[in-house]
Design a protein around this nucleic acid. Structure first.
Lengths: 334, 334
DNA sequence: GAACGTTATGCAAACGTTTGCAATAGGGTG
DNA sequence: CACCCTATTGCAAACGTTTGCATAACGTTC
């Protein structure tokens, strides 16, 4: 432990060169003779020297930081619960690091309404990744039009002057529904809230597929996207209408699992009486019993694409939305 | 969108005052007359002005950032999977924000081995919260002795010159095990890896409680802490030894759920044939069927305590470890 | 009206990098 | 040996804040 933090000038003095040379040497500037560079890098390692990032950032007008913003609607204060969102964040983290950037984890609570001011003008980050479109896109729009380098995880079909990366929700909706129908379901249920852009697309695929099938009928159970809500609404439906459906397309695995719990408690057989397909392929989908058929979103790839598109913007490009492939994972629940 | 980023001096000129006055006004310095202060704050808001954080940090030698470091052992590259850890991070985030700090999400990949150099000397953060002790504490020790303000989420009984915050794992182990015994279990199984400090404590409580009970026997199933491993080992055990146990204390809910899946597939009745208690109380514990009895760790409080202890260190204090209360949540699996 | 105290403001230095430009060293060429 | 060219290095300014100290404004008191 040094008594006082060493600065570049100290290191330079130790090596008998100027600060400029030291700076260039540490930054692998080819101007510097290789011998000098090696010497300085060795010296830096020996003394555990680190450049002062605050100073660099001030000088370079560049932070090498990417902010990740979890976008809630109402409950600004609440911490996240859905394991899928956290998985997305975690995979973004991976991709961010791989590009040599750091990840500032934030939320609407800190950033307030003026994202551009806070992150970009405030020199806290070079760009922003927004996880979740939310129901109202006003803040995103505002930030984008203020010139924030911005990428959003959401529904790629949504119009906007910022690129949205997300799964092909429409196709996913078709796939899931078709699978339910193939397995013999005829009275199928969509559980979720089409007010979310992503879910609207899934619902669209769902309806379309059902309409194509002569003797099939569709219904919508509009609920909050939590397992708790799903559990309750299924319970309630069974009580009031009996078993009025034989297939469920749930908008998330958590919702599907909540529904499954209610069904099992009332001895409805899965998949014999009711087939279920979820969405996300969280870890639990594989462990639940029966294991849950689901649409797998490729979060690993999503993280990479999000970061790539953001960095492209930093280079001045205007990247397009990206639609990621999904995969139907067939398991026991269908 | 301004063509050029506005700086404090510009704002000051606009208001007809000096930069110093502007700075003090925005920072609520009582030296400034209230009228002046209001005028400047209004002007700042009107022009969407934000202070350049990089410059502030350089000048103040303080970042207002807390780094959160997910501490893995081997797989430096792998993203996190256990929803519990992510929940902890999310709750830390909440607490960090509430104190007006920002959260830099990091991992061993970026920070390398020299945490002190990277975060503190590098002026990337004022302090570090390490999530997970890992099996080897060398890096933590090194960083702490280099003077990094540091707090660790782990087992608070572990010795070290840095404060560890965590649940009372020993007592939790006792509670869980006693509950199994109370429910009639006599051949009880511990699933987990006592090489982790936290799990060692839980295991200690487990053994002690079983030893106290005349006709009860304990065994240890040493596994990786994943649902997959749990599923496989239970399957294998049932195959080779038949049903050689009637109670399971799993070191995490994910492990418990993996075990449950294997048991259900072989028609072992839960809780009649085997009682199960998990750990963490993740969202799934409530939704699984049967729902999972578990030990709830108070992550919300944990986040607060971790942050408080870290900030105390920034004030120069030398805070003590903290042991958090746990709660037994009784559900259907026991 | 001079002296003083109080309150509000301004000046200028400092935080630690990076980089355009100037300067130096070294080596070859006419 | 003078010249030029290239390969390295150094000088000094700039990035945008914050703050100790000096100063100005203003009212009060003798």
């Amino acid at each position: 432990m040094q008594s006082k933090k060493m600065k570049l000038a100290d290191l330079a003095k130790l090596a008998g060169v100027s600060t400029s040379t030291a700076s260039r040497a540490l930054n692998n500037n080819p101007l510097i003779k290789e011998a000098t560079r090696n010497k300085l890098q060795a010296l830096a390692k020996k003394h555990n020297f680190s450049l002062n990032a605050a100073a660099s950032r001030l000088r370079l007008q560049k932070t090498n930081v990417i902010a990740v913003l979890i976008n809630f609607d109402a409950e600004t204060e609440q911490s996240i619960d859905d394991p899928f969102l956290l998985k997305v964040v975690s995979d973004i983290n991976l991709a961010v690091n791989r590009q040599g950037y750091e990840l500032l984890l934030s939320n609407s609570y800190m950033a307030g309404d003026d994202w551009h001011g806070y992150f970009i003008d405030g020199r806290r980050a070079d760009g922003v990744i927004v996880v979740g479109q939310g129901k109202q896109q006003a803040r995103i729009e505002r930030s984008a039009s203020a010139g924030t380098p911005l990428v959003v995880w959401g529904d790629p079909k949504t119009e906007g002057d910022y690129p949205i990366v997300g799964s092909d929700n429409y196709r996913a909706g078709c796939m899931a529904t078709q699978h339910l129908l193939d397995q013999g379901a005829r009275r199928v249920l969509f559980m979720g809230d089409p007010a979310h852009a992503e879910l609207a697309e899934r619902y669209r695929g769902f309806c379309e597929q059902v309409d194509k099938t002569p003797d099939a009928t569709a219904s919508l159970l509009k609920i909050d996207i939590t397992s708790q809500a799903a559990y309750e609404v299924i319970n309630h439906t069974l009580l009031s209408e009996g078993l009025s459906f034989d297939g469920i397309f749930a908008c998330s695995d958590m919702v599907a699992l909540g529904a499954m719990k209610a069904l099992k408690e009332r001895y409805v057989s899965i998949p014999n009486d009711v087939r279920i397909v979820g969405f996300d392929d969280i870890a639990m989908a594989d462990i639940s019993s029966p294991s849950l058929t689901t649409i797998k979103q490729n979060t690993r790839l999503a993280g990479q694409v999000l970061v790539d598109k953001l960095l492209a913007q930093l280079q001045g490009d205007k990247p397009q939305p990206a639609q990621l492939d999904v995969e139907l994972i067939k398991r026991q629940s269908s």
